[in-house]
Computed example of a mutant assay.
Amino acid sequence: MSNRPPLTILGSLALATPALAQDVPEPQPDIFLFAYDASASDDALSGGINTTNRPTLYDNQPFFTPGGDSFVYSRSDGAQTDVWEYDIASGTHTQITRTPENEYSPTPSPDNRTISVVFERNRSIWQVDRADPGNPVWLLETAGVDEPVGYFARNHASGDVLFWSRYGFNVALSHAGEQAYHFVSGHAVPASPHLIPGTSEFSFVHRQTNEEVWIKAVDPESRAVRPITPIAGTNANYTWAPDGSILQIEGTQLHRWREGAEGWEVIADLAHHGLASATRIAVSPDGTRVAVVGIAAD
Results as ranks from 00 to 15, higher is better:
R121G: 08
L10G: 14
T92L: 12
R98E: 14
N112C: 05
A14R: 15
R166S: 11
A44Q: 00
H187F: 13
F34C: 00
A188E: 05
E221D: 13
S203T: 14
G244Q: 03
G150L: 06
G198T: 11
T81L: 00
A40R: 10
P18M: 03
D111L: 07
G263D: 05
D219S: 11
A176R: 13
I125D: 07
N237W: 13
N155T: 04
H255Y: 14
E141F: 12
A236Y: 09
T94P: 09
F152E: 01
A180N: 12
E221Y: 09
S116G: 08
I49Q: 10
V283G: 02
A224F: 08
I88V: 14
T56Q: 11
A191E: 04
E101K: 08
V283I: 11
G47T: 12
V283M: 04
A21E: 01
A14C: 13
A143N: 03
D23L: 06
W257Q: 01
L275I: 10
S105P: 00
G134K: 09
T142R: 13
P133Q: 02
P66K: 02
R4G: 03
S2V: 08
G168T: 09
Q61S: 09
D286F: 00
D298N: 14
Y167H: 12
W126S: 04
I88D: 04
A16I: 12
S39I: 07
Q80K: 14
D243T: 07
I295K: 05
T234M: 10
N3V: 14
A232C: 14
G144C: 02
P230H: 01
R256D: 04
A21T: 10
S105D: 13
S116R: 10
T52G: 04
T199G: 09
R75S: 15
Y167G: 02
S41G: 07
G91T: 12
Q248C: 02
V213H: 03
R289K: 14
W138D: 15
G159R: 12
F71L: 03
A261N: 12
S245Q: 10
E211Q: 13
V283C: 09
Y167W: 13
P100Q: 11
H156L: 06
L247H: 01
D77E: 01
N53H: 15
D160I: 01
G251Y: 02
Q253K: 14
P148T: 08
